[in-house]
Design a protein around this nucleic acid. Structure first.
Lengths: 194, 194
DNA sequence: ATCATTACCTATCACTGATAGGAAGTCAAG
DNA sequence: CTTGACTTCCTATCAGTGATAGGTAATGAT
């Protein structure tokens, strides 16, 4: 069952709109770019966007899925070292770099800056897939307990968030990422063997 | 130099507006409550609010200072145990409870959810005073290195944020707060004596 | 009692996301 | 090739937002 010509065209159009939306988000901010500006960028009138998205939040949902897909591909493209803990470090470092690289994307994916926006089940599934990568890496490094994984994720997120909020572009907080991972992994493995 | 009658009345009026704003923020969300609704709540027409605040962001600034002042008073009112590490734990637990207690306040104080809002120097100073409390407690517990303090703060923030984002009202993440503090304090002290 | 200041009003602005309803274009079946 | 359904896009318009202009009444210090 091939995608019909119409469906293909529609899909491509949606992708181009999402791309233009990212561009505007970078220029003006993810929360404040207007659908009129987006329509202009795409060469169309504002109400025409509603042919593709039921609401601005539906557009955000597509961007959310797209952003997580980007992260997924980034994670897949990196080749991990054999040592499991080193691999975990690389994995989380990739996430941190991905976040720092694009603050607006970070806002949409990891902060709750859009009032009323909740990712759809489909988009959320992509985000879960990303989390799955981290869980696999943590598991391989001996961090199998759910609570320990939660801490690992939360600590990484905390460092990323502090970094971006207080010193965007610097490394005052993220320089400690590897050490924090060491601490957590050691603690987790120690407690699991006792 | 006593405050003039006019200044007193004005100050009280501002306080009552800020209070009403918090109330609306709780009902509708910190980002989306409208100045018209706020004006109605206060018994006034919307443009009249501009007598007290130059913009909605100026109102947010007053709320930001007010919220940090609340946290400051909460921290001051708690009496800490003699043991320095225990005191640090209590201190950070109080911050966590304060955050969880009021998500909208948390959003304004610790997330960046209001586009274009930057706290004024005066309001930021109150936030710095809060941070000062934590730094003092950390210092007493032997966490004197700036990097270690940064980690302590970031980790606490990470746990709070994960908790509120993923399981508001629960304790899946915050149950690990004390253990994380233990880890960080131990690591910090160990590295400082080597 | 006067008068400047403060507080509040009405009217209106530009802009936002969203909806209604119609016209043109596109594609596939007969 | 023509027909007819579907898709895409348009104009016009809506209610709601933060913000500004300009005028009026209340207030308090002199």
């Amino acid at each position: 069952m091939v995608a019909s010509k119409v469906a293909q065209r529609r899909e491509a159009r949606i992708a181009s709109i999402v791309e233009a939306a990212w561009s505007l988000a970078h220029e003006q901010g993810i929360q404040v770019f207007s659908l009129r500006d987006l329509a202009t960028e795409v060469g169309v009138q504002q109400p025409s966007l509603y042919t593709y998205f039921d609401s601005k939040n539906a557009l955000y949902d597509a961007m959310f899925a797209d952003g997580n897909q980007q992260l997924l591909e980034t994670l897949d493209s990196v080749d991990l070292p054999d040592d499991a803990e080193a691999a975990l470090k690389v994995c989380l470092r990739v996430v941190a770099d991905f976040a720092v690289e694009d603050p607006e994307r970070y806002s949409l994916l990891f902060s709750r800056v859009i009032p009323g926006f909740e990712p759809s089940a489909e988009s959320y599934a992509v985000a879960q897939e990303v989390l799955g990568h981290v869980v696999v890496a943590a598991d391989a490094a001996g961090v199998t307990n759910q609570g320990d994984i939660d801490c690992l994720v939360a600590v990484t997120a905390g460092l990323i968030d502090s970094q971006m909020s207080n010193e965007p572009g610097g490394d005052r907080w993220l320089q400690h990422l590897d050490r924090m991972i060491d601490l957590l992994v050691d603690d987790a493995t120690n407690r699991s063997v006792r």
